[in-house]
Simulated assay, not measured.
Amino acid sequence: MQEVWLPPWLEQHRHRAWIGDVLLAAAQVVLVLKLQQPVITVVTVGLAVFAAVAVLVRRRAPERILAAATAVAVLTMITDTVAAGLFITLGVLTFTAAAYSPRRRPWRHAVLVWGVIVVTGSVMDFANWWGPDQFGLFAWIFGGAGAGDSARMRRAYISEVTERARQAEQTREEEARRRVMDERLRIARELHDVVAHHIAVISVHAGAAGHALRDRPDEVWPVLEHIRGAADTVLDEIKSVISVLRDPDETDPTEPAPGLDRLGDLLDGLHTMGFRVRRQEHGDPRPLPAMVDLAAYRIVQEALTNAHRYGDGSALLDLTYRAGELEIQVTNRMVWPRPGRAGSGFGLLGMRERAAAAQGEVTAGPIPGGGFRVRAVLPCLQGSLT
């Protein structure tokens, strides 16, 4: 069985298209019967039903349905039972064939249909056939073909523009990810080369210092100076390499890295902007490793920022201290729709990278009731980060 071909846009609006087809089929029945008044026969009713069925199924096999309708029209002309409304059906089917056929050949359809009708009419009644009405038939069939081809070209243009935009966006995102990965690899290689070299120097001098302490204590001080100099060099090299990741307009920080002890200031700042955050804590708060403390603060900060941007103006912050881990949950209700407020996804990516750096994990997604939840689990033990 031949596969039914439909344009992609029609696949997305199949139910809506069927409603239009039903209305158009009903209009065809009315036209066929109306144009035959005052004499309506059984044949006329049959032709009206045929016209309605042809309109309903015309998209499944446009060219075959058009050929079948043309054959029926020729048969009615030969048997002198022609219905004028059937020629209107031929115009509709010519439009469909031009717009929805897998191959683009609208004028071939129009020429074949009009040519078959004209030849048949000329053979059956040449004297009465050629009249002003034939210009209307010509305009109807060729106009349907032209309109169908125009609709086809417009859909093809829109589809092409949409596809190019999608591919450009995908290419831009892939290029951005590739550049990020290349930069990370470059920094990792440079850090490895620099740190490995100077750590090796420190190790050698530390071994020499051990021997000096046992045999020649007065010679240990130059060795310690070498160790100190190598360590300072490592720190300077790391600073120079990591500095490429900083914003050139960013000023050097004059305060320590933030932690959960600064959550109060963060929540106060959000409150002044009209964003309400209800904070809950469970378990016994305890000092956290520096990396975990910083990651926890940044995750809460990013999650609340997203909740403020996409939510309804409030959020719940839940901190749970357990044996060996800290669980963070930020829950808020979403506002739909969000015109012009689509997120880039970099916020969630940043939270996951923060958690991974502290050997934790972050999960985020919608929850029942129209809300959104960000959940992070971070280790609290110093030994888990070594």
Rank of each mutant, 00 (worst) to 15 (best):
R179Y: 04
E175T: 02
E169P: 01
T171P: 00
D182W: 11
E163Q: 09
E169S: 10
A165I: 13
R152F: 02
R184S: 05
V161H: 11
R172E: 01
V161I: 12
M153I: 06
S159P: 05
V180M: 08
S159K: 10
R178I: 00
T162H: 08
E175K: 01
Y157M: 09
R172G: 00
M153Q: 15
E183R: 15
V180F: 04
A188N: 11
A176E: 01
Q167M: 13
E183A: 14
R166Y: 12
V180K: 06
R152M: 03
R155M: 14
S159H: 14
R154T: 15
M153G: 05
L185C: 08
I187G: 00
M153Y: 09
R152S: 02
A168H: 14
V161F: 10
R152W: 05
M153T: 10
V161D: 12
M181Y: 06
A176L: 06
R172N: 00
E163N: 09
A176S: 03
R178P: 00
R154P: 01
E163V: 02
R166D: 15
M181S: 07
Q167S: 12
D182V: 10
A168S: 13
R164N: 14
L185G: 09
E163F: 05
M153P: 00
R166W: 13
I158A: 12
S159Q: 15
R155P: 01
A176H: 01
Q167K: 10
E163G: 02
R155I: 03
A165C: 07
E163A: 13
E174N: 06
Q167W: 07
A168G: 11
M181L: 13
D182I: 10
I187E: 03
V180D: 03
A165E: 14
T171R: 13
T171G: 06
R184W: 03
A165W: 10
R177A: 13
M181E: 13
R177K: 12
R186D: 10
I187F: 01
E174I: 02
V180L: 12
A188Q: 12
R186Y: 07
R155L: 11
R179Q: 13
E175Y: 01
A188V: 04
T171L: 11
E163Y: 03
S159G: 15
